[in-house]
Each structure stands twice: as C-alpha cells, then as structure tokens.
Design a protein around this nucleic acid. Sequence first.
DNA 1: ACATTAAGTGATT
DNA 2: AATCACTTAATGT
Length: 209
Amino acid sequence: MAYPDRLSGLFEPGLLAEIRHRSVPRHVPAGNTLLEPGQIVRSVPIVLSGLVKVSRVEPDGRELFLYYVNPDETCAMTFTCCMENQASEIRALAEEDVDLLDVPVKAMDEWLARYPTWKAFVMRTIRSRFNELLHTIDLIAFQNLDQRLADFLRIKAKAQGSSLINLSHEAIAAELASSRVVVSRLLKKLERDGKLLLYRNQIKLLGDL
DNA sequence: ACATTAAGTGATT
DNA sequence: AATCACTTAATGT
C-alpha cells in the first residue's frame, strides 16, 4: 500500500506498520461531507491529500468557518470527541477530492501510550488549532471583520496552493457568518489598497495581506 | 432580448 | 457592522 509512504517523515517505522494494518483508506470526492454535527465520531482521519473544511453550524443553519485540515494533518476536534464516543460539534466537508486514512478510536488510543511520535503528532495538531481558534476569537471579540476576512483569504490561498480564490462575496460572507454587503465593502477597500483584484466569483490575491 | 445572479453604493440603525 | 433599498455589471437561456 502506497498511502503511508508519505507519512514516513512523521512517524517511526513501527507505528507506520501499525497505521498500515489498522487504518482504513477512504476517498471522499469534492463537495461531500465527512462528518455532520451530531454524528458519533468513531475514527480519526489522517488527511493524505486534498483539503477538508471544518466549520461550526448554528441551529439556525448559519455557518462559521473554523479551519482547514491540510494533508499530513488531522482534525483536532475529532480527538476530543472520539475518546468518549461523543457526537461531533462540527461539520467537515471535502473542499477538494480527499484521500485519507481512517484510524479506529481503539488504535489511536493505544498508540497514544506506545508511540511518542503519535503523541507528539496529536498534541501538535491540538495545540496549533487551539491557538488558531484563540486568534479568531480575539478578532470576533473586537469586531475586526476586516482582519478575519484577510486571514480567511490568506489561509484559503495557502491551503489550496493558489492565489486565485473562486468564491462569491456571498459565499465568503456565509463562511464568516457575516453579510454579503459588508464583505463586498471590505473587499473593495482591499482592492483599493492594492492587496487584491476582484472579478466575478473570483479573487486574485496580490502579495501578502 | 430577457431573466437571473453577483457586485457596488448611499442611507439608516 | 448589519440591513435596506436600489443600481450596475456579468452570465445564462
């Protein structure tokens, strides 16, 4: 199986062999949901390729972008849920075609005690997400939507490896739980400042924000 | 040519 | 920053 090869830089050989034997490869086409809120988490996905968008879904249907899970990463939320077989608090959606390895809860629990690199991997992803979330909480608390928008565009561009973002203002507003008009205005300002170019359903980032 | 959807803008809360 | 109301621009049929 070719999958775990790309993980060889992350884990020791013993663990790689375990991953090979106990994880289940899964392919998720772009646009499909990996996990809906309320669903019981039974396995932890390790993303091999593609891009997974993780967002919060409010009862009224509104959405709030939280973070992307890139290749060689895992979803931090699933760790916290799956240990106690808790329901998911978030939605995970494949934004590009995704190849991943499903690691059963039982296996990842055992590895936590046995393999230092696994423990480090888990801790690292939880810590970095936690810091990311603290950052966005700061921005929301101080009502800095312009910063949050800039962050979103930067992260999106980096995650998909292209400065061309194919999203309508409406779609971006939905991700940030804001309104289209506000996003349009902020984007227009960024364009005036020479930070990006606006087209219909498309945004071209210039340099860094 | 017409209908539909995306984006721009002033005024108001 | 959000909402409303309205205009203008781009796209689909």
